[in-house]
């Protein structure tokens, strides 16, 4: 029994992996679409949220704050379509690392700000405690999704798979 129990998960991996890949891809797509969608309606506020981190000059912060929601939406659409999945996952991971570093540095410097991850952002009112740890843990979870797609980018129902003419479950380790 011990032998079969050990063998079964390994045997099921080729079946499970594409499903996990699809879940990770759509999950990460949803994250970016929500994050971008929440900010796209008020680009000036998005710039203020970036500026609240106090890591770059105001003009740079507002330009990044204006561009970021659209980049997030575009990343979400690329992942939703499954186009250039490995690259999109890599850029997602890089962005998430930057966000985590930003939140950690705000924490370390004792700033009292909202991360501005899904809209809002900026300094908190007196008496409101910042929630840096949950924000970082959440971003680490998103980073795990991106990491999975970096290692195994191919998933069913993706443009990448369609372009390759592959059956969705094909091994593909050299994309």
């Amino acid at each position: 029994m011990g032998v079969t129990a050990a063998r079964t998960p390994a045997g099921r991996w080729p079946v499970v992996r594409p499903r996990l890949g699809l879940a990770a891809r759509l999950g990460l797509a949803a994250v970016w679409l929500f994050a971008g969608g929440a900010k796209v309606g008020d680009l000036a506020a998005s710039g203020r949220a970036v500026n609240a981190y106090q890591v770059m000059p105001y003009e740079v912060a507002t330009a990044i704050g204006a561009a970021l929601p659209f980049v997030e939406l575009a990343l979400g659409l690329l992942l939703l379509a499954g186009l250039a999945t490995r690259l999109s996952a890599g850029i997602s991971a890089a962005l998430l690392v930057v966000f985590i570093a930003g939140i950690a540095s705000a924490w370390a410097r004792g700033l009292a700000i909202d991360c501005g991850c899904f809209g809002s952002g900026g300094q908190l009112a007196a008496g409101q405690a910042p929630s840096y740890l949950p924000e970082i843990l959440r971003d680490l979870g998103f980073l795990a999704l991106a990491g999975f797609l970096l290692i195994w980018p191919r998933s069913p129902y993706s443009v990448d798979g369609w372009l390759a003419g592959d059956p969705p479950v094909e091994e593909d380790d050299d994309e």
Partner: peptide
């Protein structure tokens, strides 16, 4: 396969850069 990956990657980067420029120009025009 290598060519396909290269071109989809180039396409994706172009999409992201254009998206960023759209955001910046929308903000500037506002």
């Amino acid at each position: 396969r290598r060519k396909r990956t290269l071109w989809t990657s180039v396409g994706a980067v172009v999409v992201l850069v254009i998206a960023g420029l759209i955001g910046w120009s929308v903000y500037s025009s506002q």
